[in-house]
Write a protein that binds this DNA or RNA. Structure first.
Length: 262
DNA sequence: AATTGACGCAACCGCGACCGC
DNA sequence: AGCGGTCGCGGTTGCGTCAAT
């Protein structure tokens, strides 16, 4: 029953988020909140489904997200909570401020599970058996996935330095605060996404992103927000306004690749 | 230098729970 | 009380990166 049909229909966009989309989503949520995820993308002018927006916000754009590798303490907490709660990632995430269920889930599957796997030979902390050990391969460090919003990927030495997922990151709940006050909670430091390098430059996010975003009046955004649209889904014609936003995107030079047919 | 294969993570999918009418 | 809509969660997949060969 009431299962919302997801994005598939109507050519809503899927896949990695672009910096522009992030920007729009953040700006919209900062201004109008997210009372209705389903309606939000329309209101914000995003060609995404509500689910996708929600996920993006919760996992990457929320100002209080703590990024970076998990500390030993955090990993221990996860392990301990997992023993108690099982795969209830959201419950576990609730005990780890700044961490998302998705992130915890990933860490569990990629590191902790292996580490705890009795069939793996014991290893010094964090060695996670070098990936269940086919090839014994030091955990690769360094930035990965340049095409993906590294929102996530702090693209920073902390990651590359890690011989495990453990780093000093825990030291800072302050990072959270910084997130609120300006330092990017892992917002892309180097953006390339699916765009070209020049695009990346154009839409480069840096540590000042949040401070700028949060302090910026709406009209300062490249993409003009239309309060009337944002305030009332009713005012958003299904396609008419999409056309408007489509134009905006086109002007931003991104949609050409995304929607070649247009 | 090219190829292969494993790893890690972002994002998607589908389901159940919850809520309002 | 029943129905329909939305939200949130957990599992899974897709794909880029990089070490090993």
């Amino acid at each position: 029953m009431g299962r919302a049909p997801c994005c598939e229909k109507m050519g809503l966009k899927k896949g990695p988020w672009t910096p522009e989309e992030d920007k729009i989503l953040v700006a919209h949520i900062q201004s109008f909140g997210h009372n209705n995820w389903r309606a939000l993308p329309k209101q914000a002018g995003l060609l995404r489904c509500g689910k996708s927006c929600r996920l993006r916000w919760i996992n990457y754009l929320r100002p209080d997200i703590k990024r970076g590798n998990f500390s030993k303490e955090e990993e221990d907490v996860i392990i301990s909570l997992h023993e108690q709660l099982g795969n209830r990632w959201s419950a576990i995430a609730a005990r780890l401020p700044g961490r998302t269920d998705n992130e915890i889930k990933n860490v569990w599957h990629t590191h902790l599970k292996k580490r705890l796997d009795p069939t793996n030979k014991p290893e010094q902390h964090g060695a996670q058996a070098a990936g269940a050990g086919k090839k014994h391969r030091p955990k690769r460090g360094g930035a990965k996935k340049a095409t993906v919003p590294a929102t996530a990927a702090p693209v920073s030495p902390e990651r590359s330095a890690a011989s495990s997922s453990v780093t000093e990151s825990s030291s800072s709940m302050t990072e959270q605060e910084q997130g609120n006050t300006g330092s990017s909670p892992g917002f892309p430091k180097e953006e390339s996404f699916t765009s070209s390098a020049s695009d990346a430059e154009e839409f480069q996010f840096d540590d000042t992103f949040w401070s700028e975003t949060l302090s910026m009046p709406l009209e300062s955004f490249d993409v003009p927000m239309e309060p009337s649209d944002a305030l009332g889904a009713s005012s958003v014609g299904a396609d008419g306004d999409l056309d408007y936003w489509l134009r905006v995107f086109m002007e931003s030079g991104d949609v050409h690749q995304e929607l070649p047919q247009l």
